[in-house]
Design a protein around this nucleic acid. Structure first.
Lengths: 222, 222
DNA sequence: TGACAATTCAAACGAATGTTTGAAATATGT
DNA sequence: ACATATTTCAAACATTCGTTTGAATTGTCA
């Protein structure tokens, strides 16, 4: 007895199809440049379908944003199949790796990354919920990893700064891809390269965090 | 005998005013959402002024992008008044600090950062020239700093990865400000906080780079 | 089958936008 | 001062977009 029986999903197939197609279009060209005509055309639905099923273009967008976020986290969960007794180093590595994969993956799961990148430029009302329900827990998880790496007694500010330094490196290649591509035209982002990149980010961050921990101890903590 | 005598600039004051105002509007709402009506209204120019002086909206935009880039680099030069015999550590610190200031500054110099952030989402034809003439030299400068920090014999890939790790941390707070603001509502980005942030990024990166250099030496280079 | 609700459809509406136009105004050079 | 080129101006044009409308179609249930 599944909570969502198949008939409930098949009931409004066009609504689901619309959600899927809108995700594609929004990710490709953004909310503003996307037209409901294009979305309905690709979804093989009537122009009026968006307004009928979602009210208007904006509510369709927020539905898309929530849906893509769910799909992305289901496809690439933040812990990425980690043993319960993993070391902090392993946990950091898994965090970085799953984050990179989630962002750079092709297919439906990648849409969320693109949409979020656009949200950074022009935040919509949907961002508040998204940060509270998805980003916040992820940030807490990373901060706990950093805490166990840098040792006890580190200030909250230090933990926050280090966590940001880790996340920033992951997001950079996605966010600045247009520049990176032009700077290094031969650079590819296949699964092999992503693994190397994850390894670098992990090692770079581990070295920095551990060094900061040592330096703090020498100074007698603070 | 200045190469650009004052009469040449005063000649078409509306063109200059248009460039200035367009920079404001484009930075605020982006190329697509910006309207030539709004730009001309703020510039106290006629609707047709854009087409007369720049041909069309797109060519106005590229002119704005080049102009703001020039202003930003003039206001916050990458070396930031550094002595000729500065240590690599000082050079890295100056690079990070000037980069942060250039991006987070208020006023006309900040526009370039906002426009570039939008270019990352929807690159225009103007990006190619910009990367070639401005980003590329900056990347080379940073790479040379990293080279002198990590020690001789490091691979080009290592240098590139480390340089990216540095830049990414700088760009993160600007690019992800909507999320950061929601995660830490009390966080401010005044001049004091920017100095602290620059210090963290510098120390974090220095620790990581030097550690990578040591590790490479121990392994006998590569 | 028949009545009612849900969904789909083509067409049009109203608003906003980049651009064009041709005349009016201003500046320039002799 | 005059003739010419440059710049400004109000108005309109052509297009695109989100949304609405009312009829047609399909599905649902008794």
């Amino acid at each position: 007895m599944p909570p969502q029986p198949p008939e409930a999903t098949a009931q409004d197939a066009t609504r689901k199809h619309l959600l899927e197609t809108a995700g594609e279009v929004f990710a490709e060209v953004g909310f503003r440049a996307a037209t409901v005509r294009e979305i309905c055309l690709r979804a093989e639905a009537n122009i009026a379908a968006v307004n009928y099923h979602f009210g208007d273009k904006e509510r369709l967008y927020t539905a898309v944003l929530q849906d893509t976020c769910r799909v992305a986290l289901e496809t690439y969960p933040p812990n990425l199949g980690l043993a319960a007794k993993a070391t902090p180093e392993q946990r950091l590595s898994a965090f970085v790796r799953s984050f990179l994969l989630r962002i750079f993956s092709e297919g439906p799961a990648a849409r969320h990354g693109k949409l979020m990148a656009r949200e950074m430029i022009e935040p919509t009302g949907a961002l508040d919920d998204l940060v509270r329900e998805n980003v916040q827990p992820m940030a807490a998880m990373l901060k706990s990893i950093v805490r166990s790496l840098v040792g006890p007694g580190a200030s909250e500010e230090t933990l926050r700064l280090c966590a940001m330094s880790v996340v920033s490196q992951v997001l950079f290649y996605h966010h600045c891809r247009p520049v990176v591509r032009r700077l290094y035209p031969d650079l590819k982002f296949g699964s092999v390269e992503l693994e190397q990149l994850a390894e670098h980010i992990t090692q770079f961050s581990l070295a920095a965090i551990k060094q900061l921990g040592k330096a703090r101890k020498k100074r007698g903590g603070k």
